[in-house]
């Protein structure tokens, strides 16, 4: 698989490490609440098992060490979009 890195151009997937769904960006912020246990349970364990376009996190370990959000079709492995996770996270109003 070739991942078209937004800053570095096409790179072999061998250079990357796969983490999983981009849901992991949305870590609950209400950790002090009694009710947060359920939110963290959802965050940690519950995943959609998508047959189609899946947004997932990839880490460019053997490159510039950036985190990417890759949209990959789980049926065909076709990659339709690659963004920097930093930009995605900021667009969600998280982090710096």
């Amino acid at each position: 698989m070739i991942i078209n890195h937004p800053l570095l151009g096409p790179r072999d997937s061998e250079e990357f490490v796969y983490l999983g769904s981009t849901d992991l960006i949305n870590r609950p912020t209400n950790w002090e609440d009694e009710a947060s246990a359920e939110d963290f349970y959802q965050y940690q364990y519950i995943r959609e098992n998508v047959a189609g376009d899946h947004k997932e996190l990839w880490y460019h370990e053997q490159g510039d060490q950036s985190w990417l959000v890759v949209t990959r079709n789980t049926l065909t492995h076709e990659i339709t979009n690659v963004e920097l996770a930093q930009d995605v996270s900021r667009a969600m109003g998280r982090g710096k």
Binding site: L8, R11, D12, E14, E15, Q62, G63, D64
Partner: peptide, 10 residues
């Protein structure tokens, strides 16, 4: 200049 993997070596 670029960083990559050759023969499994960064």
């Amino acid at each position: 200049v670029s960083r990559t993997v050759m023969e499994h070596i960064g």
